[in-house]
Design a protein around this nucleic acid. Sequence first.
RNA 1: GGGAGUGUAGCUCAGUCGGUAGAGCAACGGCCUUUUAAGCCGUAGGUCUUGGGUUCGAGUCCCAACACUCUCACCA
Length: 497
Amino acid sequence: MTKAEDIGRDSSLRSERQGRFERQRQEKLSRIKQLGIDPYGGRYDGAERACDIKSRYKDGDEGQRARCAGRIVLLRDIGKLIFITLRDWSGTMQVGLSKNLLGPEASGWPLAKLLELGDIIGAAGQLGKTKTGEITVWADSVSLLSKCLCQPPEKFHGLSDIDLRYRQRFVDLWANPEVMERFKNRSSIIATIREFLQARGFLEVETPMMQRKAGGAAAKPFVTYHKTLDLDLFLRIAPELFLKRLLVGGMEKVFEINRNFRNEGLSRQHNPEFTMLELYQAYADYNVMMELTEEIICLLVEKYCHGKQVRFGEETIDYTRPWRRARYAELLKEYSGCDIEDIEAVRMRAAGLGLDEGDMDDVVVTNEVFEATVEDNLVDPTFVIDYPAALCPLTRRKKDEPKYAERFELYIGKMELANAYTELNDPAEQYENFLVQLRGQEESMARMDEDFITALKYGMPPAGGLGIGIDRLVMVLTGATSIRDVVLFPLLKPTKD
RNA sequence: GGGAGUGUAGCUCAGUCGGUAGAGCAACGGCCUUUUAAGCCGUAGGUCUUGGGUUCGAGUCCCAACACUCUCACCA
């Protein structure tokens, strides 16, 4: 028997065991059908959110009614009375099902006795409190809206197998309320960013995900193919070069929040498809972008975190303004001890770090040393400014120091969260920069894009541009230390069967 | 790809010195009209990831494979 067959047999045994539970639930489904009830319900109007029902409840007023719908997450059957904890996406609601109230017809008490954990139901009835003070819908009607045929996870611990949680996010979301909460926050964070930008006159646009040239960043692209045009295409690694074309076209403030794709490894900070905010503002520069970045993120911290000191894994991030702005060279000196001008010292340090510096250009070595020594120290928000120009082919040089470029990266919690430039708008210089390939870099940001050069020749206004990694931003704002906890369906190795 | 860790019932987990498999939840059969992870009585559920090895005897020790997690590398 081959390994594949062996594994296949193993998984079929496994599913057979699970099938035992499913068969029992199938039997219940048949019994429900025999009662003349559609186990997959239908439209259910007028259900209120659990949290709204609870907050409008007034003690002592006996005329109150309520209607709710959700999944059964707890069930306590006491004979002629059943207490159910229903979860909708606002919270939980207790429903009391009693033999007297529901009556003997099929859709009443007999149905109630067949309900089980995981089923989705609707219930309506008088609102009241129990002996112990819990607000309860005393149901006089109950509807089965969807039968659950699979065994729900353990009711107290929820689903904790990490692999299963990512593979079956649909279970994770309802079994672990804090997961639902985090994704609701993610959505709300993105909505807040949109509102913020739109209020400042930015226009949201969508640019191609499939591109002839994968430009705007240094990363391995995914390759795809268009049949009718017989065309090889890349999934974009960044929207940058298209957004800049829009600047040429006269859109003065644009942004895009969408996916980028990079064909690289997975880690707690990397998912091959990730969400990026990129924005461009004509007539601005990287200083304007710094102000904007600090403003957006502080607004979000205020809204989604408690206080300015925020826990993140082992660290505490202090968002108190103003954030540190430190030159690249200054941080290199501070943490590696090397003077950026003293390339011999930098190379020695690189060798000491075990880097194969012989095959690398000076700036590449310097950057390797920077990454190895500096990044792990940048816990509080830090703008790293003025990068070596050679590392930034799309960035304008500093007027008085042409060896450095007007670029910053923002680090928070040891992660690169944002990257911004004063955009290069000189077509001749851009053309030259596209031609320079650095030794020691696996991927280059310098990929010749003639059409983009043509666009620049028409004249692109001077501009500031900014990219913010949304997934990582959501991580630091929600305390998730793995990107998989803020991406609904992270990329996983497929299972063997 | 390197290193470390984990893999036991559907789920969450115990399993001592190597002596032949345990709990809670879920399920099934009972009892129960005010429960809060309801409770009580009973039943069933296992190729201990897989394959080798050591041993009289392996869930336990050794080797290998597979899967997952963490970590390093890669990711400017």
